[in-house]
Amino acid sequence: MDIPYAVEARRDTGLTNGKIGIWLFLASEVMLFGALFASYILIRTGSPSWPRGDTILSVPMATFNTLVLISSSVTMVMAWASLMRHRFETFRMYMGATILLGLVFLVVKYFEYSEHIHAGEVPSHSNFLAIYYTLTGLHMLHVAGGMAVNAYFWGPGAKLWKTNPEWFTNRVEHSGLFWHFVDLVWIFLFPTLYLL
């Protein structure tokens, strides 16, 4: 039995179920990160002193990671555009680049975390580090999750392209929406934690 409204839009919403589903999920994600941003504001405004992020964290590493994540967003959208033009091999190239850029982000983050942990700067060290690890840790989990989904569409999930290219294109678009959201969260995390 086929999944209904995976390709054709529903008459009541004018959207496919997948499209409305991913946007509702992203709305819940906004509230999840919103709760953590609110916690950050509460802890920071309630603290007698608060360090500037650049006195503890590495701004060059984070700037590099910001550029990496923005680049991965453009390769993701280019992967979807390639499918829209029925260029499957180009899609694989861009999707592969997106996954690799995600990996670069995580590797840089690993070095950043290692540096702090070796210096004894663990979450229990200060409120600043506690909220830093919480926010960036949750964000890293999202990067890893997005990479896993993208890797599935790059590899075994790509079989769908042969049998139902429109559905596959929609699925890649939905995966892309999640990936862009992960980029969007980092765009706010970067100045909040590293520069202020």
Partner: peptide, 21 residues
């Protein structure tokens, strides 16, 4: 419909971050 969902989400997000301020 999507724009309405996200606009509503942004409103709730702003309320959430405004509360501690």
């Amino acid at each position: 419909l999507i724009i309405a969902i996200m606009a509503l989400t942004v409103v709730f997000f702003l309320v959430l971050v405004a509360l501690p301020i």
